[in-house]
Amino acid sequence: MLHIKNLHARVEEKPILKGVDLTVNPGEVHAIMGPNGSGKSTLANIIAGRSDYEVTAGSIDFQGEDIVEMSPEERAQAGIFLAFQYPVEIPGVSNTYFLRAALNAIRKSRGEEELDSLKFLGLIKEKIKSLEFDAAMLNRSVNEGFSGGEKKRNEILQMAVLEPKLCVMDETDSGLDIDALRVVADGVNALRSSERGFLVITHYQRLLNYIVPDYVHVLMGGQIVKSGGKELALEMEERGYGWLEEAIGAGR
């Protein structure tokens, strides 16, 4: 469903992605690991359509369509979802209002009927129950004053409500306590299906015990330098990135 070919991108004249190739098929879970500053969030944000990043070469196909020129909302409506590494606070907009506006925007784009607040509340009730989400947070402003872990849970709640086809999760595990990690992972696993693809960015193999990936990739210096099965994550955790860097250096 997602085909990234030779993707080059820069931000403020600084090249960050230097030829990324990645394919995610429906039903697959791909994990991306890599050192700080290697370009993981850049890749995630580019998939979601953030305009601060300029794609200078390559292509991103989603369900057979090149999405590079598409607006963020068009991508979301097509089924792409990014769980942010740093979810944004929006004072003055209630979480419920925001969730309903998002869901209805997506439904509308598909020619589906918009949900009134009553129907929406019915739907959201179910979701917050399974995610053990504190209902009081629905009436608060989006992410405002949420703890780090609460923000991450809120991302997953949005994902559960919007039911995207491609879920890109940028370090959703960072900041979650051990119990929250399991709840979030259960939520993600509940969403796993043969039609849905996942791109899970993480620093820690621990998450991958819960959300078991089909593939693991290592992004370094703006390129995917190594790909493998779930055992690659274990290896990275054990050995760190230094050896890979040396190995690549030696290969050049």
């Binding site: 607006s71 909302e73 944004v88 929006i90 998002a102």
Partner: peptide, 28 residues
């Protein structure tokens, strides 16, 4: 730009996102 992108990334059209943020600004 970040709140704007955040809202758009959830499917909310640009104009609507802008209005929503301005509403939030005036809501106080």
């Amino acid at each position: 730009s970040m709140p704007q992108f955040y809202l758009q990334s959830r499917g909310i059209p640009k104009d609507e996102a802008e209005s929503l943020l301005i509403y939030a600004f005036a809501a106080e």
